[in-house]
Amino acid sequence: MEFATVLSLLDATIRLSTPLLLACLAGLYSERSGVFDIGLEGKMLMAAFAAGAVAAVTGSAWAGLLAALIVSIMTASLQGAAAISLKGNQLIAGVAINMLAAGLTTFLGQQWFRQGGRTPQLSADGRFGTVELPFAPQIGQIPVVGPIYQELISGHYILVYVAFLAVPITAYVLYRTRFGLRLRAVGENPKAVDTAGISVNRLRYQAVLITGLLCGFAGAYFSIAQGSGFGNNMTAGKGFIALAALIFAKWKPVPAMFTCLLFGFLDALQIRLQGAELGGIEIPVQAIQALPYVLTVVLLAGFIGKAVGPKAGGVPYTKER
């Protein structure tokens, strides 16, 4: 392959892994605190719709982003209320959130905009433009390194940088702050945390709200950065790939980034490989599409390494009386 082809493939990889990364880190906070979250997809979908709708009405991408964050955090709170305060089944809460999002976004979209569930096409102001990093044109003149900086690192939507910045921030928060220590502890042994006089439920709510925040960014990325407007079921299972990535990365932030890049790369490859051949045999696109899920199943089964989640995950905490 030529250098330019490789570069554009990697460029697509970054674009496609961004929402995965945001959702994956979102799930990381929640699951590390002991709340399983299979509702990432639903929160993203809600956020994508909110962003698309508000950006279409106000014509401002920032207003859209704000709406996405608010709606996603509200959805996360609902899920949190069910899973934490009411001690409901966390998995079922996630299923309900996904289904609610699928129904509500299509329904309200149809009601408000009457375009079959789509939100109107956004103007240039309504969606995020790409960000040119300083000196991109100048550095771009340097051979090899130049194009990498100009094409690959510079010239993405602002949310792409948010996503990749969120990785070191998450790593710092998780491993270097008091909140992070408590967060990890509450996912492993909530009783110990409770005994130390720290509220388990409060910590879990904080984690779930951060999850909502990050899902908001991920959702907004779909409708007002990558796309220009919301479409039915726009997130198309990306929330579940993010969940797979989270497991694949063993609930750790930096491996999460690499896993999301890998899954994003597979996605980019799959788009490019339509009908391509490898050694005379045509590779079915579906095989590449299914690869992230297959890899996750294999990893989870312990055939290549072992993924063990937070010990207290999935169990609502009840104080003994």
Binding site: L86, A93, L100
Partner: peptide, 12 residues
């Protein structure tokens, strides 16, 4: 979705 939410996750 609401039935799942209320009967399954919000019994409390």
């Amino acid at each position: 979705a609401l039935v799942i939410l209320f009967t399954g996750a919000m019994e409390g």
